[in-house]
Amino acid sequence: MKSTIFVKPGQVAIENVDMPTIQASDDVILRVVRACVCGSDLWGYRGQDQMEPNSQNTGHEALGIVEQVGEGITTLVPGDFVIAPFTHGCGHCAACRAGFEGGCLNHEDNFSTGSQAQYMRYQHGEWSLIKIPGQPEDYSEEMLKSLLTLADVMATGYHAARVTDVEKGDTVVVVGDGAVGLCGIISAKMRGAKRIIAMSRHEDRQKLALEFGATDIIAERGDDAVEKVMSLTNNEGADVILECVGTEQSVDTAVRSGRPGARVGRVGVPHNSKMDLTPMFFSNTAIAGGPASVTTYDKKILLRAVLNGEIHPGKVFTKTFDLNDIDAAYKAMDERKVIKSYVIVA
């Protein structure tokens, strides 16, 4: 089968590799029909995360058709159309019961890999995989795009809003204008935020932020961005900040943009080596976040919202690529020519 291979920083490629096989009783083999490139994939592509040359890439978002199931799978049969979340919860441990399956206590290998391929082995599929009514051909491409965001970015944006308990009337700042940040705007609006301040320097992302519900745009960064937040909030600061990047600057901007007692939701994969918590102690700032509870949110809220046309997160996909053109899909995101690259596999 065809699979994406990390060649070296700045290059991925398609190679023929062996088909995945059932290795555990709760494995599911999926035929991937739609995949994409995640902002977190770019850390390795840019050489900022260490990756072994000529190794399989860690794509982790997919829509697929169930091909085979392990003997322990009772919730799925071959032919089912599913969302493949990037987190794999068991559904019954203390973490999963509390709605934090990103930290499932029973599955150490809790994250997907290998979705930028024709087939993938999905581990721990009994509870995690999300069945979609019908088959791919029953949906428009626009709807498939929105369904694909439910594998990661829409749920991750929602996670930032949920762990900070965004509620009606809140003023929310969203740090990061990638797909997760834009989905964070959708999420803040869903939960009733009165004012949503989006930080973005790129016109295409600014336009989409406003379409999704942002009320204000801040193009500045660092100290200037914090000053702008204060000027927009009568020098009080925001109630909630959604940090959707993970860099040292973005985290610093987030924690300084809130009022005393503000809540900061961190869902950007951390790439800041250290963090001084002293200022947050004296401002009573609450910090929460981590890997998103994808299955929980999809089952309870997000799949229904997408199927009913209440939200349209698939608009974050601004260019479509064939799997054979996966390196171009990475380059387009790396160079900010697209917000998120959508990959047709079938």
Rank of each mutant, 00 (worst) to 15 (best):
S257H: 02
M199L: 15
H312P: 00
T87C: 08
S293A: 15
T253A: 11
Q123H: 12
G79H: 08
K337Q: 15
D27N: 14
A13I: 01
I132W: 01
E167P: 00
I14W: 04
T233E: 01
T247K: 08
Y139V: 00
P270C: 12
G192W: 10
Q68N: 09
T4C: 15
A209E: 05
D252F: 07
S25N: 14
L42N: 09
E71L: 13
S250N: 04
T149V: 09
I186Q: 05
G103Y: 12
Q249D: 13
G72S: 10
C96V: 11
N308L: 13
P20I: 05
K337D: 13
A94P: 00
N308Q: 14
C104K: 06
V255Q: 05
P291K: 13
G184W: 05
K131F: 05
V345K: 12
R191I: 07
A160T: 06
V66H: 08
G70A: 12
D239A: 00
V180N: 09
G47C: 06
N284D: 08
F281I: 15
R256E: 10
K131R: 15
K131P: 10
Q249A: 14
Q11S: 04
P291N: 13
E61S: 09
K194A: 15
S231V: 02
G261W: 09
G290A: 11
Y297G: 11
E227P: 02
K315P: 04
M19C: 02
Y297Q: 10
M51T: 04
C38H: 08
D334K: 09
P85D: 10
I14Y: 01
R121E: 04
D177P: 02
V77W: 00
K145G: 05
S146K: 03
S146I: 05
V240A: 03
V269S: 08
P279Y: 07
D165C: 11
R201S: 15
P53T: 05
G181D: 06
E227A: 15
I132R: 00
L302T: 10
L323D: 11
G99A: 12
Q123W: 04
G72Y: 08
E15K: 15
V82S: 11
G265F: 04
V255Y: 05
P20N: 01
E71V: 14
M190H: 03
P20Q: 05
G39K: 09
G289T: 11
C183Y: 01
D18L: 02
K331V: 14
D27Y: 11
H60M: 13
V37R: 01
S25T: 14
P9V: 13
M230A: 03
C104G: 10
I339K: 09
A288R: 06
A225M: 15
G10Y: 07
A332M: 03
R266F: 14
R97F: 03
T58C: 10
M333F: 06
K315H: 12
P78H: 03
V17S: 00
G44N: 04
A305G: 02
V180T: 13
G258C: 13
F111R: 08
G181P: 03
A198T: 07
C36Q: 04
D170G: 12
L105S: 10
D325Q: 13
K207W: 00
M1T: 09
L232Y: 07
K274F: 10
Q135F: 00
S3M: 05
D322W: 03
K2Y: 04
V28H: 01
G261R: 09
S3E: 10
L208K: 06
G309L: 12
G181V: 06
D80N: 15
R263I: 02
Q56I: 11
S3A: 15
E141P: 01
M51S: 00
D26N: 15
